[in-house]
Amino acid sequence: MNATRRGIITALPIVGAGVLGLGFWRILSGMRTGTFDPRAINNPQVGKPVPNFAIPGLPGLGDGFTDAELRAQTRPVLVNFFASWCIPCVQEMPGLRAISRDLPIWGVAYEDKPENASAFVKRDGTPYARVASDRHGRVAIDWGVTGVPESFLVMPGGRIVWHGSAALDPALFESEIRPHLARL
């Protein structure tokens, strides 16, 4: 074995370790900014039309909505599954209020007593354009929701193009959702 070949071979480990290290660094910085979630799960609904459903509204917050109404929209809509018993949902509320200035948000209260959900939404001002109650979580199953909060970006015509399972804030909105809106 000549000297150059030996040199190249003995340099391979550090190159490999360097690539791995770089990957870990990217993952860690993604975890800090919220763009990388090691526990994320693919949502099978992304890329598909919204599933069929019709759910009632919450007391004092108007009627519920159906998949037909969602499909009939001419602007993108963010569908947000939440619950009054969910702490990240509480943390998410100010972020949602900020996002609702750019994008209408339709809320779905997941496995929650309607009066609790209603009080929770009204407490600091609702971010939701419309809100409905999925009392027993049946609709959430069709959407492939694994927990709350989860959000879906629904395009005009009713196609789901993005799914997120972290509490939203304006920074995440800019990095994850805005690019989809720009493509319209």
Binding site: G7, P13, I14
Partner: peptide, 13 residues
């Protein structure tokens, strides 16, 4: 790890 592997790449040949 990087330090030891760099040393390895330098000295092992």
């Amino acid at each position: 790890i990087g330090g030891s592997l760099a040393l390895f790449a330098w000295r092992a040949p």
